[in-house]
Design a binder for these strands. Structure first.
Length: 490
RNA sequence: CGGGGAGUAGCUCAGCCUGGCAGAGCACCACGUUUGGGACGUGGGGGCCGGAGGUUCAAAUCCUCUCUCCCCGACCA
């Protein structure tokens, strides 16, 4: 995992997205210091998600899961092991995943007759069972999601963004018609986009992947792409239209209403712990994490200010407990920090952990029947009456959520370039990166050359690409009908 | 997998060149004074110096081998 030399005390290194090493240092240190996660040195590239980080994941999971249920999906759990023969059934699929699969070759003290892959994704296992379970058009659609862990043996790993083992959800659906499956693919892409923007305050661009970037075994792949502070793109969720590729490979067929035996049309879609990394990068600052209120494990932290007077101290304690109780009663995730650290230490600590709103309650406030509120994103301080605190904090949480999203949208706007010529393209990619929208003729050759020369890939052909009209390919000058979204990526 | 760097206290590191009691800061524990933006004092606990072999009266330090981790590249949710 990147950057081992981390001071686990004192000042956090500043967040400087223009310096790759400094930025990576900030990111890794902020995550370890805030106790979101720790790396597991004994197995390279793996990490522990600590309680604070897992709570973040659970909040995200709950929101996503709600959206899956609302669109008709049910959860299930499929096995971790995939027999090698399964992976091989779909030629492109195995070709795409083979290099990063971890294999189990021995078990029970013996060498296995057939080695088992630890799932890098589960299309093949779902395919196997769907073939058994689907007989008639009446059995369709099948809409199943699973929350699971996945192993992909990557060469370079980064907390959350790319770890050897990661958590995700994978939806696998089977449909009667091409149109229905395609609709499902787009529906789930929409769910992801809405989730990222509403819950994580992370603006995304949705669109279709090119052939080169397509999921191994898919007919078409769609993704949502977020822009990170260092100008690189993060693929944050994918939805695949698998056509009948897996249906044929696993013989998933049904007898249709017209009496004909047909293959089903399948989709798969996934979002992982990776997007948490994107969210942390996007919103954090020199002081540490800045968590969007909607998924923050603690939305408001109440800090009692110590005093030497016993009378005042008990007043403070009572007020603190009352405020926490009132907040909890209205559904705000609030806690008091009763530890015996000094107030300044607590401020720094909870800012590092990204808690959206801090409440300070001390004798000076209480003498005027006030409490002090500080929002994490702007660090703006204000005082409100004790009675008005709950309502005001709820407002602040909404404001912080909106503020983070607006800031991220503004950043993206400032770092999205409409480019017509290749010299400008190269200069921008070298100097400042960011998103580039440029016409592309559709040839893999131009795409490949651009990647070689600038490290930029086509992230997606944006959904709204038609609106740009037509022009000439930024690389070869041939006629082009759409602008592609280019960026260097994580 | 190729190129570079590093392994010494929980963390960050000094010590190594020139062999001679294993250290500092932070963290941790106790007590006291403190407490509205990362307090201070006193005392304390904590180490197979990554591992193996060698040279030597003596090795964290010199030599050989080995393992691991990190950074930079190619592959990726």
């Amino acid at each position: 995992m990147a950057t081992p030399q981390i001071e686990l005390s004192g000042q956090l290194p500043p967040k400087d997205p223009t310096d790759a090493e400094a930025f990576s240092r900030w990111y890794t240190t902020a995550i370890r210091r805030s106790e979101l996660a720790d790396y597991f040195e004994a197995v390279g590239g793996t990490m522990v998600i600590r309680p604070y980080g897992f709570s973040l994941w659970e909040n995200m999971q709950a929101e996503l899961d709600k959206r899956f249920k609302a669109t008709g999906h049910k959860n299930a759990y499929f096995p971790l092991f995939v027999p090698e023969s399964f992976l091989k059934r779909e030629a492109k699929h195995v070709e795409g995943f083979a290099p990063e699969v971890a294999w189990v070759t021995h078990a029970g003290g013996e060498e296995l007759a057939e080695r088992l892959a630890i799932r890098p994704t589960s299309e093949t296992i779902f395919g196997h069972f769907y073939a058994k379970w689907i007989q008639s058009w009446r059995d369709l659609p099948v809409l199943i999601n699973q929350w699971a862990n996945i192993v992909r043996w990557e060469k370079r790993t980064v907390f959350f963004l790319r770890t050897t083992e990661f958590l995700w959800q994978e939806g696998h659906t089977a449909h009667r018609t091409r149109e229905e499956a395609h609709e499902e693919t787009m529906r789930m892409l929409g769910v992801y986009a809405d989730f990222a923007e509403t819950e994580l305050a992370l603006p995304v661009i949705r669109g279709e992947k090119t052939t080169a970037e397509r999921f191994a075994g898919a007919e078409s792949t769609f993704s949502i792409e977020a822009l990170m502070p260092d100008g690189k793109a993060l693929q944050s969720g994918t939805s695949h239209f698998l056509g009948q590729n897996f249906a044929r490979a696993f013989d998933i067929n049904f007898l249709d209403q017209d009496g004909e035996r047909k293959f089903v049309w399948t989709t798969s879609w996934g979002m992982s712990t990776r997007i948490l990394g994107g969210m942390l990068m996007a919103h954090g600052d020199d002081g540490g994490l800045v968590l969007p209120p909607r998924v923050a494990p603690i939305q408001a932290i109440v800090v009692p200010i110590p005093t030497r007077s016993d009378d005042e101290a008990s007043q403070v304690s009572e007020a603190v407990a009352a405020v926490v109780r009132a907040l909890n009663a209205t559904g705000v995730r609030a806690e008091a920090d009763w530890s015996d650290k000094r107030p300044g230490w607590k401020y720094a600590e909870w800012e590092l952990k990204g808690v959206p709103v801090r409440v300070e309650i001390g004798p000076r406030d209480l003498a005027k029947n006030l409490v002090t509120l500080v929002r994490r994103d702007t660090r703006a301080k204000e005082q409100v009456s004790v009675e008005g605190a709950t309502a005001r904090i709820s407002e602040l949480l909404i404001d912080v959520q909106a503020g983070l999203f607006e800031r991220a949208v503004a950043f993206r706007a400032a770092n999205t370039h409409i480019v017509e010529d290749y010299d400008t393209f190269k200069r921008i990619m070298q100097e400042q990166r960011g998103f580039i929208r440029a016409f592309w003729c559709g040839s893999s050759e131009c795409e490949g050359r651009i990647k070689e020369e600038t490290k930029a890939t086509i992230r997606v052909i944006p959904e709204d690409a038609e609106a740009d009209g037509s022009g000439r390919c930024v690389y070869c000058g041939q006629p082009a009908t759409k602008r592609a979204l280019f960026a260097q990526s994580y």
